[in-house]
């Protein structure tokens, strides 16, 4: 694959539920700015797992913050993405405890099975994967996160099974 695929989704605008959630969050903090991280999570979810420019702009407008500031925050954190991601996003821990229990073989298996490199999206838009820092599950090494779920005590075969289960 030579090129990043076309974005799967765009930012559809804040739904009434999302707005209500943001308003509820405002009551929790003394400043609107503190709602920024949770609001970015909401916008990212609405956009299919990443933050297109219009999502970032909408969050800035919603919270009355300068866009430059919101961009600065988005680029700081590893869980906000400015590029489209697969429908399923896989993060493989390769930090020390996982490294010495075989995380390289887990990365190899993903590369072979998915046929794309790190941070690329499979042509059908189904998956993307990255290596990641310690995910706080070193006792179940090697491990990876598939979307929000921890998949633990992995072997190459187990990884293949998990991939087959992803639609």
């Amino acid at each position: 694959m030579t090129e990043a695929p076309a974005p799967q989704t765009r930012f559809p605008g804040f739904t009434p539920e999302a707005r209500a959630q943001i308003d509820m969050l405002r009551t929790r903090y003394p400043t609107a700015e503190a709602v920024l991280l949770p609001a970015l999570y909401i916008a990212q979810r609405l956009s299919g797992g990443w933050l297109p420019d219009e999502a970032i702009q909408a969050v800035a407008a919603e919270l009355d913050l300068p866009e430059s500031k919101v961009y600065g925050v988005v680029t700081f954190y590893d869980l906000f993405h400015q590029k489209p991601v697969g429908r399923h996003r896989i993060r493989v821990c390769t930090n020390l405890s996982c490294q010495i229990r075989g995380s390289a073989e887990i990365m190899d298996t993903l590369r072979q099975e998915l046929g794309v490199g790190e941070e690329e999206v499979t042509p059908d838009g189904r998956c993307s994967y990255v290596h990641f820092e310690c995910l706080g599950s070193c006792d179940t090494a090697p491990m990876m996160m598939v979307d929000d779920d921890y998949r633990e005590n992995l072997t190459p075969n187990k990884v293949r099974d998990i991939l087959r289960g992803l639609k």
Binding site: N95, L96, S97, E133, C134, G136, S137, C138, D139
Partner: peptide, 11 residues
């Protein structure tokens, strides 16, 4: 925040 590599006790 528990992000120190090797740490998983708070979870």
């Amino acid at each position: 925040d528990e992000s120190e590599p090797g740490t998983f006790k708070d979870r």
